[in-house]
Design a protein around this nucleic acid. Structure first.
Lengths: 138, 138
DNA sequence: GCTTGACTTAGACATTGTCTATTGTAGGAT
DNA sequence: ATCCTACAATAGACAATGTCTAAGTCAAGC
C-alpha cells in the first residue's frame, strides 16, 4: 500500500492527509466498499474530511487505474482496490456479499467478430450470482 | 407482446390501463430503457400515470421474470424485455450505447468449484466494454 | 350494479452522487 | 525559513434515482 502512495506521488499527485486516509481505507479492507462506507471509515481517522473529497479522490483513483468501480446491481457503486490482479465477482443475490473469483477461460475470446458491431472491445466484466452459504442456511 | 399480457393475466394480474401501457412501452422498444425513460414514454400515452406506478410495475415484471434489470455502470438501472432469450451486453464506455450479444462458451462452466466458496451459483452476467464506432470516429 | 381489495396517485422522503464558491495548504521558488 | 500559487478540501446546495405513505379509484367477481 505504501506502494500505492509511492506510485501516486510518482505521478505528480499532491499528497494530502485526506488522500492518504482514503488510500489507507481502501488498502486496509478487502471487502468492496461503497463510497459512503469509505467516507465513514475515513471520518473515523480524520473527522473533518468531507464527502466531496472522498468522492473526488475515489474518482481520481479510478481514473488513474488504481482502483476499479464495481457495479453489482446494488444501488451504490463499490470500489475495488484489487485493480492490478484481474478477477471477477460472485455476488449473493440475497445479502449482497461479494467474493473475488478467478474463472478459467477468456470471455473476450468468446465474443466473435460478428457479435462486436464494430465496437473496439477492451474489457469484460463477469458477475456470477447466486446464494451464499449463510443465506442458504437461513 | 399480447403474449406477455396473456401470461400476466394468467398469473392473476389485475389488468389496468397503466400496466398495459408499461408493458407496451417495454415491448415496442428494443433499446434498454431506464425507469425514467419508460415513464416518459408511458406518459405520452397515458398522461396521468405516476412515477410510482411505473417503478412498481417494472419491479413486478422483474419479480415475475418477464423483464431483466441490467446494471451497466451508468447511474440508472435499465430494463431488458428480452428475458426469455439468454444474452449478454456490450456497452460503449463513452456514450453508454448498449447492444445485446451472444458469446460462445458457457461462463458458468468456467467457474471451478474451488472458486465458488459454497455459493449456489445460478446465473452469470457478462458485460463487455469498449468504444462504439460512432465514438471511435469522433 | 355493488363490494372489496388490489391498484394508482401525488408528493414527501431517502439515498447516492455532483457542483460551486470559498478557504486552506503542499511543495517549489526565493 | 518564508512566501506564493496552483491545486486540493470544505460545506452545503443541487441533481438524479428510487422508495414509501395515506388517501382515493377501479377491475373483476358476485
Amino acid at each position: 500500500m505504501s506502494d500505492l502512495l509511492e506510485r501516486l506521488r510518482g505521478r505528480g499527485w499532491r499528497m494530502t492527509a485526506q488522500r492518504r486516509v482514503v488510500a489507507e481505507v481502501l488498502d486496509g479492507e478487502h471487502v468492496h466498499l461503497t463510497a459512503d462506507e469509505v467516507h465513514s471509515r475515513a471520518v473515523a481517522r480524520l473527522p473533518e474530511i468531507s464527502r466531496a473529497t472522498v468522492y473526488n479522490t475515489l474518482g481520481e483513483l479510478v481514473s488513474l487505474g488504481e482502483v476499479l468501480e464495481v457495479a453489482t446491481d446494488k444501488r451504490a457503486k463499490r470500489y475495488d482496490p484489487n485493480a492490478h490482479r484481474p478477477h471477477h465477482h460472485l455476488v449473493c443475490a440475497q445479502c449482497g456479499a461479494i467474493r473475488d473469483v478467478h474463472p478459467t477461460g477468456n470471455p473476450l475470446a468468446d465474443l466473435p467478430d460478428s457479435e462486436r458491431f464494430g465496437f473496439t472491445v477492451s474489457d469484460v466484466e463477469v458477475t456470477y450470482r447466486g446464494t451464499c452459504p449463510n443465506c442458504a442456511a437461513a
